[in-house]
Design a protein around this nucleic acid. Structure first.
Lengths: 269, 269
DNA sequence: GGTTGTGAACATATTCACAGCA
DNA sequence: TGCTGTGAATATGTTCACAACC
């Protein structure tokens, strides 16, 4: 997941578990594809496969929404599309603003899936006066000075932040002061926001780091060692990066303990 | 969060819980900032605040890595930076390829945080022959034909897919066949990959939909109704979208049951 | 005194397995 | 017979609260 919630304790929204909410869009996408192929019904098994989850989980998820299936038959595709859309609040459309029209902001503005499903880009906002008026994705970029007015005039409640990290907190404060209550943050910073404001973050480098962690493990496992314990089912000191996969310096430091300094030339700042 | 794992059942990697792994990059970022300000030590309380989590969670997370703190004092910043970097596999650098150099791919190629922390963009690959040779982020785009050669020559094990949805599955297959074992997928599709390959996905529209869900709830709560049960602590039918927030059609359909058709004009396909 | 590290309690999420129904 | 819906079992994650230690 390249995703994550910030603040907001775990409110278990309206009886539907967060984990379920996070999967509803997945189901919706799979159902939409079926709908386009005019498939009338699906079983939990088929739909689960299309969404990349297992069928028990899917059925449990749907059970939180109500009893929308038919035993022995499956789910009516159109009906489910509607129910999930409604549950997600996509039966109305949400104006959003994108703040920070750099490479990423422009990419977001051009992203089709954005507009297609209940969301409408109401404005593109950037702090650079040179950007003002320039068309991006067929829409003129507006200057940050206009931010409050834009939010209010359009009734925007969802803001997307694609600014550099340094600007993000301040932008979020202005958005929130103007009435935004949900933020999708692409800037690599922790935003601190008042209670009642939802923040979700998308962070490239975090995702890559998580992948690197798993890569490292794979490398450590496979190669160069039936040596260390694989027998010790869990818990014992596990093989660190016994062998380095593509090319690079191995880190052969002892784990656990090692209380003394050691601290070798640390990473890129 | 904009993220999510696909496939790979929850392997609880090397004794460190997934949830903890997903937070390590957050801690690392906060620590790096402290390190740059030459702060020598932090308490769990301070660091937790900087990372946007609570201190108990942070201490528990660190306890999986070992005992790297000093009671009554806190954690040595440099030492922790090193330990976490090592744990995440960032003490070596990982060549990555980006496939699909459209708006998003270009944005990723230009993204600084990419290169800065253990990752190196080894190549930009696109299927459009017209793109070939064009410089993006100071690097010539290469044609898809070269994909296998590039992966092998550079020992790439991490691939980033930023192609349209339709191309993603096929690209992932070629990447995997050539030796990639971790994929960061920006295309809005479920990739199906063999066991042993990690996929993480970043999906804009999923994140927005999750935000919309919570927005809808907020709207339904506040306005126009002490009407429905707020007293019924949990479980009972809860207020649906009683009132629509910015502007839009309300969906006043009965929940739970409603076995008969109904299916009104469904969403944008 | 102050802060870590961690068992135990609690909360959430996933999976199993089967009763109930079309 | 086939598939949903769901309790019960299990697994994972979070929080509490305090003993251990500097």
């Amino acid at each position: 997941m390249a995703t994550g919630r910030t603040h907001r304790p775990a409110t278990r929204s309206r009886g539907i578990p967060e984990a379920t909410v996070a999967r509803l869009p997945l189901y919706l996408r799979a159902l939409t594809a079926l709908s386009e192929r005019s498939v009338p019904t699906v079983s939990s098994e088929e739909l689960a496969a299309a969404a990349g989850v297992n069928s028990a989980k899917l059925r449990k998820d749907f059970s939180y929404l109500g009893s929308y299936g038919t035993r022995g038959v499956g789910y009516d595709v159109e009906y489910l599309v509607y129910q999930i859309s409604r549950e997600l609040g996509l039966t109305q459309d949400w104006p959003v603003v994108i703040v920070g029209i750099g490479n990423l902001g422009a990419a977001l503005a051009n992203y089709g899936g954005f507009a297609s499903r209940g969301f409408r880009v109401a404005a593109l906002i950037d702090a650079d006066p040179a950007m003002a008026g320039k068309p991006v994705a067929g829409m003129p970029v507006q200057h940050t000075d206009e931010l409050e007015k834009i939010i209010e005039d359009n009734g925007v409640s969802i803001g997307v932040i694609a600014t550099p990290a340094g600007a993000a907190q301040q932008v979020s404060e202005r958005l929130i002061a103007a009435g935004v209550t949900s933020i999708l943050n692409f800037a690599p910073t922790v935003l601190s926001v008042p209670e009642g404001v939802d923040v979700r973050k998308v962070d490239l480098s975090i995702e890559l780091q998580i992948l690197a962690f798993h890569e490292q493990r794979k490398a450590g496992e496979g190669a160069a060692a039936a040596a260390a314990a694989e027998a010790s089912s869990v818990g014992g000191a596990a093989p660190a990066a016994a062998v380095v996969p593509p090319a690079g310096r191995a880190a052969a430091v002892a784990r656990k303990g090692n209380p003394e300094g050691d601290v070798p030339a640390v990473m890129p700042a």
